[in-house]
Nucleic acid binder design. Structure first.
Length: 341
DNA sequence: TAATCGTGGCG
DNA sequence: TCGCCAAGATT
């Protein structure tokens, strides 16, 4: 399949998407900081969702040195809504480690040792920022390769085989452009459903297209059903204050700002304070591995009471955009109850 | 190894 | 409406 890379790069030269973190085709190496930041944000996250976060982060922190010096709570607040919050915690740890080392390492093995950088991201940074012929394998590449070679083995078991096959395609020149071209192809032509094979620059070399089974690949093993869990969130308000807590650093929504809550993450505890709690309509939220119905309890107090959990924050300092998505839903449920009250 | 970890968009 | 799944890493 020696002809794949030239055909794909020729397509990329004409069809590359313009993205805030990207250097135009043939433009050479990109800023390692911007490559790294974008790749972390893009883990299991769509380009559309990442774009605004990337622009905001690079405006606030233009360099890895600036990010390394940032306040933890501000970084968590800026990440709020993007999901997978371990990424934000690892982002700061990685930035500080990189600055302490005097910059990003250039080889994949050294990159792999940094927090939050695994097999995919290390290869992407090495190829895109440092022009090294590493093979970048994300979900797009897995799909493109599974179709090119008509791999019938279902994912995730097929991953090692797909990685090996992908490596046979990686060129010695322009490896960064090649990696981004594979991902662009997967995002725009070789899509999971209804792939546009007629427009594909690789259709002449594609075994799945030839066999008429491109839309069926890659096959996937069936996923376990999602359990339904039920919990409670407590929203306590005074005219001036709001009760919030910082969640423990590990586990679900780790390190994020949140309303005290219970029952849904293997914990259970009473209300954070004694009050007349009124029950609102529950909030529904679907996580990766379970669905949640969160009961919303609201207490309107004349003055702050001693709380067993969390701390009282002045309401002018509170912004729901600093909360993860689930907690934004909780706040959206509360808001109509207190407007005009 | 298999489970854990968010959210939004799309067919 | 709802299941799928996206530029994965960690333990």
């Amino acid at each position: 399949m020696r002809e794949v890379a030239p055909a794909l790069l020729a397509w990329y030269d004409r069809h590359a998407r313009s993205l805030p973190w990207r250097v135009p085709p043939g433009g050479g190496r990109a800023d390692p900081y911007r490559v790294w930041l974008s790749e972390i944000m893009l883990q299991q996250t769509t380009v559309a969702a990442v774009r605004a976060y990337f622009l905001r982060f690079t405006a606030l922190w233009p360099t890895v040195e600036a990010l390394a010096a940032a306040d933890d709570a501000q970084v968590m607040a800026e990440w709020a809504g993007l999901g997978y919050y371990a990424r934000a915690r690892n982002l700061l740890a990685c930035a500080r480690q990189v600055v302490a080392q005097g910059g990003f390492p250039q080889d994949r093995t050294a990159l792999m040792t940094l927090p939050g950088i695994g097999p995919y991201t290390s290869a992407a940074i090495a190829a895109i920022a440092f022009d090294q012929p590493e093979t970048v394998v994300d979900g797009n590449v897995e799909r493109v390769v599974a179709r090119l070679f008509a791999v019938e083995t279902p994912l995730p078991a097929a991953k090692p085989e797909l990685t090996r096959l992908a490596a046979t395609l990686t060129p010695q020149t322009r490896p960064g452009d090649f990696a981004q071209a594979m991902m662009d192809l997967g995002a725009t032509i070789c899509t999971p459903r209804n792939p546009a094979c007629a427009l594909c620059p690789l259709n002449a070399m594609c075994a799945a297209f030839r066999a008429g089974i491109a839309p069926e690949l890659p096959r996937r093993s069936p996923k376990p059903a999602k359990p339904q869990r039920i919990g409670t969130a407590w929203v306590a308000l005074t005219p001036d204050l709001i009760l919030l807590e910082r969640r423990p650093p590990k586990g679900l929504l780790g390190g994020t700002l949140a309303f005290p809550s219970t029952g849904w993450d293997n914990s259970d505890s009473p209300a954070p304070l004694m009050a007349e709690w009124q029950m609102l309509e529950p909030v529904e939220h679907v996580f990766t591995h379970f669905a949640l119905r969160l009961q919303v309890h609201l207490a309107l107090l004349p003055a702050p009471a001693n709380a067993a959990r969390g701390s009282w924050l002045p309401r002018p300092e509170f912004a729901s955009r600093d909360l993860p998505g689930l907690m934004r839903k909780v706040w959206a449920r509360v808001l109509p109850e207190i407007e005009g009250g």
